[in-house]
Design a protein around this nucleic acid. Structure first.
Lengths: 210, 210
DNA sequence: GTCTATAAGCGGATAGAC
DNA sequence: GTCTATCCGCTTATAGAC
C-alpha cells in the first residue's frame, strides 16, 4: 500500500495549490522581513497574494505555521545552491564568503533573518528553537572547518577554531545590521574576506580556482 | 529674566513627576527590549508602572516620543559611566571591552539594542535615524582610535583602521544575538578580547593597569 | 479553493471628570 | 497627575456559503 504524496510534482494533482503556496511563502517572507513575525500581519500577506485572510488560512492553519513554512522553505532553497564538500575546510569557509556576496543581492532575505533572529531571542517566540539550532549548526560547521585548517597548518598561530567560528558568524550578522541601515556604509563581502585573511595564512585563494 | 527649569533637581518642584517619568522609562525599556517597539504595548508599560494608559500618555504624548525618551535616557546614563579620554586610542578600544563586560550583567539593555536595531532597519521606523547616527558615531570613534594605534606602530600589519572599526562593531552586535539566544554558548568578553588581540600587537594590556 | 460574515480581543489615542 | 469612558481600527481565527 504505497500512497503517492499528491502535492508533489510541478504538474501533478494540486499543482495550483502548490503554486499558490509558493506565492504565499514569497509574500510572507517580504512581510515578516519588513515587520517581523509579531508585527507582520496575515492580512498584509494575503493582500500581497491577492487572497482574503481566510483564503490564506486555508493553506496554512495559523500564523506560526506560516512562519515555520517560510523558514523551512528558505532552508530548502539554500541547500540547493549550497552543496559544498563539508570535508574540504577551505570550501566551507569560502562558502560563507560566497553566501555573503549573494546576500548583497537579496536584501529581503537578509532582512528576514536579521529581524527574526533578534525577535526570536525571547524564549516564547515561535522561531526561538529554530534559531538556537541554526546557530549551533553554523558554529559546529565552522569549528570543524577551522579545525581542519589548523591540522593542515593553514591557520594563523594562536587562532582557536571554536572561537574563530563564533567570531565569523557574529561578524556576518553584525555586518548585516549596519548594511541594512545604510548600504553605502560598508562592503560586506570585502569585510568578510579581510577578516578571513587575518585568520588563515594568506593568500586565501578560492579553492575552486585551483 | 531667567526662568529656572522646574523639572530639574531631585527634590525640586515636580519631583514626583520626575520620579514617575524615570519609572516609566525603566518599564518601557523592559517592554521594548522584549517585544520591540512595534509589538510592545503602552498598556504593558503602564501596567508595569501601575498606571493607566491615559496616565502614561500624560507624561509622554505618544508611543514614539516614549521610545525616543528611552533611547535618550540610555545615552545619558551611558555617558556618565563612559568618560574615556578620546585622545587615548588604547583607552577607547579598551572601553569597548569594558562595555561588553558590563553588558553581560544587564541583558535587558543588550536585548533593547539588539531588538530595536534590527527593527529599525526599515526607513519608516521611529528609531531609524537614531541608529544610523549611532553606528556612524561608533565607527568614527573606533576608526580614529585604530588610526592612532597605527601611527604608533601598535597595529598589526595589513590592518585597515576603518575596516577594523566596522568589524569590531559588527562582532559586538553579532555576539549579542547568539548570547541572548543561549548564554552558555559563548563568552562575549573573551571573544572580544581575543579579536582585539588579533588586531593589535600583543599583549594588549589594560592601559589603566599601567 | 476561496469567499463573506463574524467573533472576540488588543492597539493607540482623545475628552473630560476628579 | 491620574482616572474612566470611549472611539475606531486592526488583529487572528472560525463557521459556513459558494
Amino acid at each position: 500500500m504505497t500512497t503517492t504524496p499528491r502535492t508533489r510534482g510541478p504538474r501533478g494533482p494540486y499543482a495550483k495549490t502548490r503554486a499558490t503556496k509558493l506565492r504565499i511563502l514569497d509574500a510572507a517572507l517580504a512581510v515578516f522581513a519588513e515587520s517581523g513575525f509579531r508585527s507582520g500581519s496575515l492580512r498584509e500577506v494575503a493582500d500581497k497574494v491577492g487572497l482574503s485572510d481566510a483564503g490564506l488560512l486555508h493553506h496554512y492553519p495559523n500564523k506560526a505555521a506560516l512562519l515555520e513554512a517560510v523558514l523551512r522553505h528558505r532552508d530548502d532553497v539554500a541547500l540547493v545552491d549550497f552543496h559544498v564538500d563539508l570535508a574540504d575546510p577551505r570550501a566551507v569557509v569560502q562558502a560563507f564568503v560566497d553566501i555573503t556576496e549573494r546576500n548583497m543581492h537579496q536584501p529581503g532575505v537578509v532582512e528576514l533573518y536579521c529581524t527574526l533572529s533578534a525577535e526570536a531571542t525571547t524564549p516564547d517566540h515561535p522561531a526561538h528553537g529554530y534559531f538556537i539550532e541554526r546557530y549551533d549548526w553554523l558554529r559546529g560547521l565552522l569549528t570543524q572547518a577551522f579545525t581542519g585548517l589548523a591540522e593542515r597548518g593553514e591557520l594563523r598561530d594562536g587562532v582557536d577554531p571554536a572561537s574563530a567560528a563564533v567570531q565569523l558568524v557574529s561578524l556576518l550578522d553584525g555586518l548585516q545590521v549596519q548594511w541594512l541601515l545604510d548600504r553605502t556604509a560598508l562592503d560586506m563581502t570585502a569585510e568578510v574576506k579581510r577578516h578571513v585573511d587575518t585568520l588563515v595564512h594568506a593568500p586565501f585563494v578560492d579553492p575552486r580556482a585551483a
